[in-house]
Design a protein around this nucleic acid. Structure first.
Lengths: 198, 198
DNA sequence: CGATACATGTAACCGGTTACATGATTTT
DNA sequence: AAAATCATGTAACCGGTTACATGTATCG
């Protein structure tokens, strides 16, 4: 298993080859997963992935005096990335690696079929709903009057996961509606299949 | 500055003296901040805090053959904890240390005056609102049709922070209403002061 | 010409994760 | 008698943070 940062790098490089500095710019200029844009995190991670054979580097000398190490995904890298993208959201991730579920969703757009994305979201929703139930259990077992702040904090947590459940529903609807429009548009050329399986 | 885990330990030990194992039980049986309950994290952290003079240990030999290192807060520990509890929520925390704001809120119940708690929540809300605006800016600058998933992900993020803003409003209201009831109840005995200042 | 952006690294530090280790006590 | 809980630790590993280092190119 790789770190979440490493999967993010695989995913970014997988959408289009890029150098460490491009990743740095992405991380510092967009709210992408809220990763650190520090070179001390990015460059060593990309080297690790190269050493593991998941990324390969090509020296870009188009600007003579300032070479860029442009990375691209290897086949094994694509395999590792896709295997990860297909992992269902676990309870543990909801608690400790909260960035991973949404990162998989974002990176999944380029590499998973819509049906797979929907299945992934449904899994996420089920896990969230189960966890909400678990948290409600805690809430019920809390002595009523004492400890106001813990109760409020727990309510906030529950709301957050409920918000995700709601959002997932709307995301699925939006993906489905695109699927319909996409099928219409690509219908003539693609005979409306090739998107389902994969 | 200490780690979030270390502040959590200060806060817990500060509410009532406890041993490492008690912390372990709390972390593994309640959704308190979602810290790891592994001994490899807890015990060394408590030793560090002891070395720094923020906690002090007392050997409890009530069960002869199984001594417990029961920690309690030192004055310096209480000072460090309270200084941290008074730190306003920063944008950075909203992004990278999401557990810290809610942890301060929970631990603040025992050590801050209601007025301070409300000020803290108002600061949190202001920071969240500003960050929502920032995220809305990103949303506006995204090219409309391409990249469905990043847009959905961003919308999820915005909702999360908006949910916090809502929750903060209700939390403040609940704290205020308690304050009213508390003053009424304590009015005869305490002459209705001693709660306001600190 | 100074500041900012481009571009890539290294090295020390630190703390969390995982796994191992030990032994007493209580429960089934 | 076995299993679970009580109770505290240690040690290797690993990766992120911070800071330092270096030099080019572009912009105002």
């Amino acid at each position: 298993m790789l770190t979440t940062l490493e999967y993010a790098l695989l995913g970014l490089v997988g959408t289009s080859p890029m150098a460490g500095y491009d990743v740095h710019k992405l991380f510092s200029s967009t709210p992408l997963g809220h990763f650190s844009s520090s070179p001390g995190a990015i460059y060593p991670a990309m080297r690790r992935l190269e050493r593991k054979g998941l990324l390969q580097a090509a020296l870009d000398r188009s600007i003579e005096t300032r070479p860029r190490r442009v990375y691209s995904l290897t086949e094994r890298g694509a395999g590792a990335l896709e295997a990860w993208l297909r992992q269902p959201v676990t309870r543990e991730e909801l608690i400790r690696d909260t960035g991973a579920p949404i990162l998989r969703f974002v990176l999944g757009e380029a590499r998973l079929a819509p049906a797979e994305v929907i299945a992934y979201l449904e899994g996420w929703r089920a896990t969230s709903e189960a966890y909400v139930q678990e948290l409600r259990g805690h809430l019920g077992r809390m002595d009523a009057d004492r400890a106001l702040h813990p109760r409020l904090a727990l309510e906030r947590g529950i709301r957050g996961y409920e918000g995700d459940v709601e959002w997932i529903g709307e995301a699925i609807a939006e993906i489905r509606s695109r699927l319909g429009r996409g099928a219409e548009a690509a219908g003539e050329a693609e005979h409306s299949h090739g998107e389902e399986s994969r």
